[in-house]
């Protein structure tokens, strides 16, 4: 199905580890002691995403999803491996990559005293957009996302998390990225807000030339939105297939139809079982 489509994102053998301090240490005692231990956040991860595809990444907390998204978004430098976005290497052609991408994270991350209009206009100017056109686009996008006009001109801090997250999606969409990184965009939202955000992602997928990388904890969301899904556990990809393909790997479960949640528990829960057995 995807063979003739252009490669939007090529992640090749990417590894990222952090050195974390173990407790408080005086700076002069840090050398040659065991106070700092490396933690592997991403371990030799490889996959490709085709243009127009919605590619999902599922994984438990701390599995490396956000670290991977940050590496693609030029916010972290991988220790090893290569990330290429539409032919541009993330480490060598950072500015070219930045022009092609945008990101929505689990935290809305705005200047809280400023209004959505002020925050989004700031974002638009950073991407070299003209103010007058940007204002019109901001109003149109926020209207599409269900924000009332009066909400556009009141401080972000007075808004619910769901509304803030919609503004975050508008900020990313405003710059018309051809690779959109959605890092748990619906986590913590009420069902209605979650559904509205998911509908907007569906619209992006169906009507606009956007490739989407989506990380989520919501199995139904991944099942309904994603063309393919990778499951990340302890920094490694443990499975990668279409949602149907992943379900087929697990087979029937307790008499009910297999869901992505069954797949997730099967693939990421094994280790827990091993640890319990070892204990």
């Amino acid at each position: 199905m995807y063979d003739n489509m252009q490669i939007a994102l090529d992640v090749s053998a990417v590894t990222k580890q952090f050195v974390k301090a173990k407790g408080l240490r005086w700076p002069w005692k840090r050398k040659n002691d065991d106070g700092r231990k490396p933690v592997v956040a991403i371990d030799n991860v490889s996959f490709t995403v085709r243009r127009g595809e919605v590619f999902g990444i599922l994984g438990p907390n701390g599995s490396g999803k956000s670290t991977l998204v940050r590496c693609i978004a030029t916010l972290l430098l991988p220790d090893q491996g290569e990330i290429v976005v539409f032919g541009h290497n993330v480490m060598q052609e950072e500015m070219a990559v930045k022009r092609l991408i945008n990101r929505v994270s689990v935290e809305a991350s705005f200047f809280k005293k400023l209004t959505p209009m002020e925050n989004l206009l700031y974002g638009a100017r950073l991407y070299g957009m003209e103010a007058q056109d940007s204002r019109k686009q901001i109003l149109a996008i926020l209207d599409r996302l269900g924000l009332k006009k009066e909400d556009v001109y009141r401080p972000m801090e007075e808004m619910s998390r769901g509304m803030q997250q919609k503004v975050a999606i508008a900020r990313a969409f405003l710059t018309q990225p051809i690779l959109l990184l959605l890092d748990e965009p619906t986590t913590g939202l009420d069902p209605r807000s979650k559904r509205e955000v998911q509908a907007f992602v569906e619209e992006l997928r169906d009507r606009h030339d956007a490739t989407i990388l989506l990380t989520t904890h919501d199995m139904q969301e991944a099942d309904s939105l994603c063309n393919r899904v990778a499951i990340l556990d302890e920094g490694r990809i443990v499975a990668l297939d279409t949602p149907a393909g992943l379900k087929a790997q697990v087979g029937r479960s307790n008499g009910h139809e297999v869901t992505l949640e069954d797949v997730f528990m099967e693939l990421t829960g094994k280790q827990l079982h091993r640890e319990e057995e070892a204990a």
């Binding site: 978004a73 500015m95 990101r103 991350s109 705005f110 974002g123 950073l126 991407y127």
Partner: peptide
């Protein structure tokens, strides 16, 4: 908490 968005801009 906006630092990543500013640093991600081109």
């Amino acid at each position: 908490d906006t630092i990543e968005y500013t640093f991600m801009a081109p």
